[in-house]
Design a protein around this nucleic acid. Structure first.
Lengths: 249, 249
DNA sequence: TCAACTACATTGGACTAACCAATATAAAGA
DNA sequence: TCTTTATATTGGTTAGTCCAATGTAGTTGA
């Protein structure tokens, strides 16, 4: 992973790690190339290659004769605004994919319906990996059915955030396990609305689908927060308990 | 532009030009590093730096011991799918910004309404630059008012495509000149719906706004196509006319 | 005849050792 | 004190060399 047989890439990873860990704070300067070369035990050309890659990623800015500066980034390492919450992502998906479904209902062909049906069948799989994949496929076919490449691109972006934003991904993981076949049923309803070419029903079905996800998220988040509080409480208990005094006596 | 005082960047530009011009076709191989070095009259490390930058841009793929391969790219130089038409972009904006407006109507504060009003006033400016900017500002405030960072990010992305996709940008430019103060009026209607906190009215007003843009686009596209046909006709006339024979006699 | 193997040429990967140019810093002068 | 100037630092670029992976052609053996 860190070494695609290309030295400079591993250096990029290492430097990125140092940036994220706060060793090289944003706005600050990286050590000079020669120093980095010594530090990572590679030659200066290799360091330069790494720096150029980082520059292309918009993580650093090179100023000739001055130094290499770490850019502050609202966007995380993968270009995602990591402050986006699972709720925001889901709400956005509801609105956008809802409209996409409505538009798709007016455009969908029988071939596309067949594709959706295949995905639907795969969703019955007990394997979460297969299930997840079928879920994604289902929504992507709908996005594609709009016949609007911009819409398709936007929805793809939503999935990208879903899969790559650490916070969002974690949240989605935890609600994934806890559901039965309710989700399949929801997708069936979307499918049926599309089959009937009923745009309003398709929009509504999609909204309901995401509404349930939001509710699940609320439950899970609540539970996690309670858990966190409980943990802190026990920590405090241990920290502030006078057991060591009591037992010492 | 081609020389930010950084040799490798100018090489990137040159290679990119050669790729786009078809000299280095997609799927094909670039000349070997040593040859490129000679061709552009720079050293091999510099060529390597350029290649790494191109790699980061996902324009080429390097295979050790084999060669540098040009990736086929649906996405253009700026990462935009250049095949997205102005119609698709506008339709997507209508759907997405329509929902954003509806959501914003339920959330908007008086301060945000004031911001919109400022943008509205600036829109009266005769300067297209000021006008354009105010327009963008207006929509951005609404996106921001949703309180949903994902939504905000998506809408920003739509504007990015609008401003940076050559085809889309050109189309929007040509309809920009031809309109009077109709556009201002449309924005006023959106504003009033938001002021009333009427989500449905806000959505509708936004839809109407984009509906008019689509209509304008249709007119302009039609006109351009007619123009193109006319041009070709006159070309053919010149090419195939026998004037040179007639006059020669 | 054809398949597999070997040897060689090609190509990218990386390093060392320099030198140049822009910038920043500290010392000297007005 | 402010400006100027010298010097050190830092990135920019080059040349030359060697290594490793890959591709290819020629040879060998069944």
């Amino acid at each position: 992973m860190a070494g695609d047989k290309r030295l400079y890439k591993s250096i990029v990873d290492k430097v990125l790690l140092s940036i994220d860990s706060g060793e090289f704070p944003a706005g600050g300067r990286l050590p000079p190339e020669r120093e980095l070369a010594e530090r990572y035990d590679v030659s200066r050309p290799t360091i330069r290659e790494a720096i150029i890659a980082l520059e292309a990623l918009e993580r650093v800015e090179v100023k000739t004769g001055s130094g290499i500066y770490v850019l502050e980034s609202t966007t995380g390492w993968n270009g995602i605004d990591s402050s986006i919450s699972p709720f925001e992502l889901t709400e956005a998906r509801a609105m956008i994919e809802g409209e996409a479904a409505a538009l798709a209902a007016t455009m969908i062909t029988n071939e596309q319906l067949a594709e959706l049906e295949i995905a639907l069948n795969e969703m019955a799989s007990p394997s979460t990996a297969v299930y997840e994949n079928a879920d994604k496929k289902f929504h992507q076919v709908i996005a594609n059915t709009t016949g609007n490449k911009m819409m398709d691109s936007v929805i793809n972006n939503l999935w990208y955030v879903r899969d790559n934003s650490p916070t969002v991904h974690r949240a989605y993981q935890s609600i994934c396990e806890t559901d039965g076949n309710v989700r399949v049923q929801e997708h069936v309803e979307i499918f049926e609305a599309l089959q009937k070419r009923d745009d309003r029903a398709a929009r509504t079905a999609m909204h309901q689908h995401f509404s349930r996800i939001i509710n699940k998220l609320i439950v899970v988040t609540e539970k996690e927060q309670l858990e966190a509080i409980r943990r802190k409480m026990t920590e405090s208990k241990e920290r502030f308990s006078l057991n060591h005094l009591v037992t010492a006596n």
